[in-house]
Design a protein around this nucleic acid. Structure first.
Lengths: 163, 163
DNA sequence: CCGAGATGTTTCGCGTGCGAAACATCTACC
DNA sequence: GGTAGATGTTTCGCACGCGAAACATCTCGG
């Protein structure tokens, strides 16, 4: 690896800050929109996903919102308590629980204008097509590099315990 | 705003995924490195910051790790309980608490190879200087656009209550 | 000097968020 | 058909993470 000039170092820091900014800002947005509907961030996300896709099993929901089942169980507990969703035990596979919006939940969902992540997406859409392509190319290069480093520097005993 | 073609839409989604991936991966890394030192993610971050910068007041620490004071109070409580840091009441301003690594904490810090965020940074450094500049240009454009949208779509009552 | 507001920290209550273990049910293989 | 392992969900214990309120101390104007 070539030595890094201080100039580059500084630009790297800026990029890093930008990524963190974009991520945290999109979370802040979710929270703000949620607050107006008397919801929490994750609850708003769940409501909008169920509105868009329809009933989902708890695991499917966990995948969608990138959280563990145990986390989602808690979120759904509280939403059920508030009467926003209901749990329906599947008849085909009685292990499975389907989560469905109640009328109250559906009404609430319809009153929330946009998925908050859409704000972030629409910001990206203000870029030119060329810029988006460039951005994607660069980001995926970074992502690939991160994966490499992770495998090399952090992965050693992960391998051992994956056995 | 021009209409968005489905092609662009898809690329936007990819960019979005990439940003989320990079962010969550860097968090996962922190956690993995922390686990090896019997620490939590935030605790590792604190230990490394104190090692690098030296004593900090609780508020300064909160700024550094982008968390609320109340959150950091809890983190420091647990670290103090584990004997990793100590609280020192400032003599100049008795409201202020300085956080200092104990010997045990300093030893631990020295055994942890890198700040985890460094992995992310070093991935960025694998890009060419030109790519970094491009990336930065594009990302800051996105960030600017997000700010605009936020002010327009979400900021209305934020203004009102800022009064 | 002294009291009002500013500032630094903690406390409290709540909602994630995780991993491990428990539990229910299903599937496959014998 | 019975059971061992797989799969879906919940429970548990813990550590954030936040905002509001409480608390301690400081500062500044009168």
């Amino acid at each position: 690896m070539p030595p890094i000039s201080p100039d580059i170092k500084q630009e790297v820091d800026q990029v890093f800050e930008a990524v963190v900014y974009l991520y945290t800002e999109s979370r802040r947005l979710t929270k703000e929109l949620a607050r107006r509907a008397q919801l929490t961030g994750p609850q708003l996300t769940v409501v909008k996903i169920l509105e868009t896709i329809g009933d989902l099993s708890l695991s499917e929901l966990s995948d969608k919102i990138r959280a563990q089942n145990s986390t989602v169980t808690g979120i759904i507990d509280r939403m059920e308590r508030e009467g926003l969703v209901q749990r329906l035990r599947s008849t085909e596979d009685r292990r499975v629980v389907h989560i469905r919006l109640t009328e109250k939940g559906a009404k609430l969902a319809s009153e929330i204008p946009v998925e908050p992540m859409e704000i972030f997406r629409s910001a990206l859409e203000s870029l030119s097509a060329q810029e988006i392509r460039d951005l994607m190319k660069i980001l995926s290069k970074v992502a690939k590099r991160v994966k490499q480093i992770v495998r090399r520097d952090v992965g050693e005993d992960a391998v051992a315990q994956a056995k």
